[in-house]
């Protein structure tokens, strides 16, 4: 049987969640691999949520927020935009491909963009294959070297 990625999406209430809703009402097709968790703003996405999702067996995590300048809370998405690269580094340090975590902007009217992003992300994770956490053991020396390096 072919590999079906399990994905978690954190969608902000105002733009992306509405965009996803619109994709639904407009009967647009996208892969059913992603399960959505609604948060009020992409700024609510605690890096721990992403780690927790990966720890529980998600093969990839997609965070969707309003386009820069459009956040319902003025600047929540900017905070998310700062937090996400750090989260990716953290994930990378754990031996997980950083491509498994992605941040995109989808507005309330961009139903087709929503379905494109989800389709594309699903395909990317499908190519990467399942996330094998058990392969990873904490290598103190390598982590220190990585820290030095940065």
């Amino acid at each position: 049987m072919s590999f079906e990625p399990r994905l978690v999406g954190f969608l902000c209430n105002w733009c992306s969640y509405t965009g996803a809703d619109l994709a639904g009402t407009a009967r647009m097709k996208y892969p059913p691999n992603m399960r959505v968790i609604r948060v009020m703003c992409s700024g609510r996405v605690d890096p721990n949520f992403i780690l927790e999702a990966l720890a529980h067996g998600a093969d990839g995590v997609l965070v969707l927020g309003c386009h820069p300048g459009d956040c319902h809370y003025a600047e929540g998405n900017y905070k998310c935009r700062k937090r996400l690269p750090i989260t990716k580094r953290l994930v990378e340090g754990m031996g997980i491909e950083p491509q498994r975590v992605r941040l995109e902007w989808v507005s309330a009217s961009e139903a087709s963009r929503f379905s494109e992003v989800v389709t594309e992300f699903t395909e990317q994770i499908r190519v990467l294959g399942p996330l094998k956490l058990e392969d990873w053991t904490f290598d103190r020396a390598a982590a220190d070297a990585q820290l030095e390096h940065n």
Partner: peptide
């Protein structure tokens, strides 16, 4: 408070 949750995440 408008409940954006930014503080909770931070």
């Amino acid at each position: 408070c408008k409940a954006c949750g930014t503080c909770a995440a931070g």
